[in-house]
Design a protein around this nucleic acid. Structure first.
Lengths: 214, 214
DNA sequence: GAAAGTATGTTGTAATTACAACATTTCAGG
DNA sequence: CCTGAAATGTTGTAATTACAACATACTTTC
């Protein structure tokens, strides 16, 4: 198991190596590998597992019965997912989680939180609060990216956010075209088309997932 | 100050009256009234205040420079808002918060959390975790409501959620037409039009904010 | 209960998007 | 360096939406 990624995670911030090892045991840490495209959770499932990506990435998405996909979030190496469902173990998942590429996930049982001593649990809860709070901001930012009614507006909203995050007008995005389309809630072909127009209009330059705002 | 609403809130779950009074002091509880339409927070502001609605309701929204509004969430009596920004006090708000109707808000300083004794703080953090986690699910559900590409799909997705929540095919929604349009990210006139068509098609019946799914 | 103001419904047209079908490019194995 | 598979780009048409303008209904206030 890849310890270093977990040791640097928000969840274990402030814990030393010994404590982390004990916690991993107490929380029944289990690692599992998935191939690209594999489904990790399906809508309707119930889980108490806090999930941590130690390699690769997964998408949190909603798939309707006509095969339309909406990507709510892309969770990369070093990030958590399913924390809301893990902490509210009665609530069935509203989303699917899929491997966006070959990946490795560590599962931590939140049911076992109750067995921990108060001090440890309190520190862990404080860290969990940071995780959920940041996830809130992430979900909010998607709302801004999909708020503009037109495709160009959505693309610009998204690219702006990334540009600010990376402190640069030039950057890579974590999505391929289909994923970006599903994230922005537009047709892939319309997205491709609009990106071409934006390049012709001199707004951006892009090649694959590398973008430059002009 | 309306004590009873606060006493029944998630935040103070498990605390007795004396403890709550002390906490209110320790967290510098301050109450403020707003008229409908008043702005409570503006995008870009920084705050450490956890906000609680004791009367009326507020909308969490994003307003772009062309006057387009997107409603992310409607926060009613007994619910919290701004918790993410209160707990991550470096992050400037991405949203505006406005009074959806005349309302009363209680502000609690999260900066003051640090001064509490460990036991109390731990209990409070656990409750805060519930608040943020539920808020996560709320934000997710909006994503499902706006996921369908067409207006009718969005309306049905939204009405279905409310119907399930209220365990009934007949219910009131908390939005007027303009708010529902801004929540579903569609034009108000298109929404009105589609609701009419859906009634003609025998899918629903509605009058003002009272709906029935057939 | 009239008037003014607000909310909701209707309609037409211009603009945009969805969708399908196909062309081109890129990439991984053999 | 081929070949097939996957990803991306292009195009045309039908369907949908945005927007503006106006009609109607409902509320509030005097």
């Amino acid at each position: 198991m890849d310890i270093s990624v977990l040791h640097n995670s928000i969840l274990f911030k402030g814990f030393d190596d010994t404590e982390i090892s004990e916690l991993m045991k107490a929380l029944n840490a289990a690692e599992k590998k998935y191939n690209k495209g594999a489904m990790i959770f399906s809508s309707g499932e119930i889980t108490d597992k806090l999930c941590f990506v130690t390699a690769g990435s997964v998408t949190v998405e909603s798939n309707d019965m006509w095969g339309n996909r909406t990507i709510l979030n892309l969770v990369g190496k070093g990030q958590f997912f399913a924390e809301s469902y893990a902490l509210l173990p009665d609530v069935p998942m509203l989303v699917d989680v899929c491997a966006a590429e070959d990946c490795t996930v560590v599962f931590l049982s939140m049911k076992s939180l109750a067995d921990l001593n108060d001090t440890i649990r309190a520190r862990l809860l404080a860290n969990l609060l940071t995780i959920t709070t940041r996830k809130n901001l992430h979900l909010s930012s998607r709302s801004f990216h999909t708020a503009p009614r037109q495709v160009r507006g959505r693309i610009m909203a998204y690219l702006n956010t990334i540009s600010v995050q990376k402190h640069s007008r030039e950057f890579d995005i974590p999505f391929d075209r289909q994923q970006l389309a599903d994230y922005l809630n537009v047709e892939r072909s319309v997205l491709s088309n609009e990106l071409s127009k934006m390049q012709r209009d001199g707004l951006i330059r892009c090649r694959k997932n590398h973008f430059e705002i002009i």
